[in-house]
Design a protein around this nucleic acid. Structure first.
Lengths: 338, 338
DNA sequence: ATTATTAACGAGAACGTTATCGAAATCACC
DNA sequence: GGTGATTTCGATAACGTTCTCGTTAATAAT
């Protein structure tokens, strides 16, 4: 059994009380400079490190925040986490990582097993469809500060941080139209997710505002992965008599899947079929042709979410706030007709 | 101040003792089925969740393991973490993430501030050069189970999990030679890192075994990033009268940087200059030409590291073990002369 | 009927820390 | 030199759990 130096050991070694040691290690408002110095030296010598279980127990605050996220093996999420981590670390908070693998069941289990009392707050990007977030609602009702980011549930009234999906999508589609594409398809994520619904609305409104017809056959729902992008395109080009001349993908990974599928069909990207994504994954600049996209402020979303959560934790009366960060259209080769 | 239902609240509500409630919530060896049922129902009703600070305090085990890693925004590290996380989660452990940004100073600070008593173990991929790992040694001396992965310090005698860097590098260079490349340069990481030294040795031995001369001018040391790869190639092609006809990069990101630099110089990759990397980042298959590489078992390294740490935690007498997982040569277009 | 055995539960200490309260000891002040 | 204020410190109760003992009541064995 491991045993580390405690405050008691220091007290015994110096022949003073634990209360004095405790004071010396924190604020020195009630301890003489001499004993304070003695204590600090002894602590250093004995490799003393505070036991956060004990402090957490008595102060009922743990300086730990949970982060629930579908995956981390992609640019967007890993960048968001980096932002979260930086803010948390600078304020003395640790982050505990939970990965749901985009499985609503696993998410539910994780949230249900979550020990409220060993977490000061929670950041979450949900995998479940918006209408099935009871498990989160319970946490919030029990008083745990929660901030949602990116994929946020619609009904829950609490702080949310997200990019401007609607306008980003609108800009992307408007760009396609301005480039002269007219038969624009959209490959999106699963139904019932707030984020995808917003991008879909942006797509639809951009088409309507420019007098282009909506066709439900040109909207393909599936998952978020590259493979999904490939199969979506396969579907688009077999099912329809009229094939699209441009594709707006819900994210870069699906856009890349689309490009792979198009290349396989020997369709020239840009010249014959324009492709635009959403995220601005670094891969956009490396793939050939380079991929136009809407840059998401991933890092900023991470930072902002964490900052918001920390103010939530500080003052429990804090009211929910919705932060929308805007993206930026980035034009590259995949939407160039020449 | 938040207050959650505790074991005491359940006891009071049911008019029984806390000891009985505690027993009912864990093993039922000493409690009647009826009261057990009552307790479980009440716990459910009151949204009771165990307080891990309290359990951690009394059992002096926290079910938390720290993970120290330079970054997470790349394929290799995020995949390793996913592997770690899966094993940890399945065994009821949580992971706490520390990101060092490849800064030895930050790493030192993190390790120094680490509370031993609030962690059951530590997984670390070091940023510091091998000879400056005193901060880790202290932790280990104090009795914290530690497992190093990927970038491991040389002297510290403790469990380590890594890929077979030497043989991977050897295979990569041997492949280049077999393809007919003769003037093979190596762009590597910083000096004094175990991993890069091993890959360098593999490079050197492969050349020697095939009767090719070593030239120190063709080994460029710098960082691990894509930008570093670009500048390394710039350096290679300006400083040398004889320019190389192949480049072995210490990782895929640098290989991609090299490709970018070569393309800028209008040098045809493969035909004129072969390029091979190390990692098997998914981007290898997306970039054009596709990038040959040595696949690292990132996911397996994460899983194995975590498994090893957990056995360490279980039996404190466990002796350090070195695990070397082998990679796999993957041949693609960037090393094809046609 | 008496004793041993078991099943079911309660009382209380312990884990390492902070917080409250009070007790000395020192100091200043008139 | 007595009073009050201040400085410095110690005792002790909490925080929520588990664990070690007891204790009681019911059951089994003689």
């Amino acid at each position: 059994m491991r045993r580390f130096a405690t405050i008691k050991d220091i007290a015994k070694a110096l022949g003073i009380s634990v209360a004095t040691v405790s004071r010396a290690l924190r604020d020195a408002y009630d301890v003489s400079p001499q004993t304070r110095k003695l204590v600090l030296e002894k602590a250093e010598e004995m490799h003393y490190k505070p036991n956060f279980n004990a402090t957490g127990l008595v102060k009922s605050s743990t300086h730990k925040i949970g982060v629930i996220i579908p995956a981390i093996t992609n640019y967007y999420f890993s960048t968001v986490i980096t932002g979260i981590q930086e803010v948390a670390q600078s304020k003395g908070y640790n982050i505990i990582l939970y990965i749901t693998n985009d499985s609503p069941e696993l998410e539910k289990k994780i949230v249900y097993d979550l020990s409220l009392s060993s977490l000061d707050g929670l950041l979450a990007c949900v995998s479940s469809p918006s209408d099935a977030c009871k498990h989160f609602q319970e946490l919030i009702d029990d008083g745990l500060p929660v901030v949602f980011f990116d994929r946020v549930p619609e009904e829950i009234n609490i702080s949310k941080v997200m990019q401007d999906d609607y306008n980003g999508a609108y800009q992307a589609v408007k760009h396609l139209i301005e480039k002269g594409y007219e038969k624009i398809a959209h490959i999106t994520g699963p139904k019932g997710v707030f984020l995808t619904e917003n991008r879909l609305r942006g797509y639809q409104d951009a088409l309507q505002d420019h007098n282009l017809a909506l066709d439900n056959k040109w909207v393909v729902y599936s998952g978020f992965s590259q493979k999904d992008g490939e199969s979506d395109v396969a579907q688009l080009f077999t099912e329809n008599l009229k094939t699209p001349d441009a594709i707006f993908a819900v994210n870069d990974r699906k856009a890349i899947g689309a490009m792979v599928a198009l290349k396989r069909k020997n369709i020239r990207i840009g010249a014959e079929v324009g492709v635009i994504g959403f995220t601005n994954d670094p891969i956009c600049e490396i793939i050939s042709p380079t991929l136009s996209t809407v840059a998401e402020p991933a890092y900023e979303i991470g930072r902002k979410s964490c900052e918001l959560l920390l103010t939530h934790i500080k003052k429990s009366t804090f009211i929910g706030e919705e932060v929308v960060l805007s993206g930026e259209l980035i034009v590259r080769e995949s939407t160039s007709r020449v």
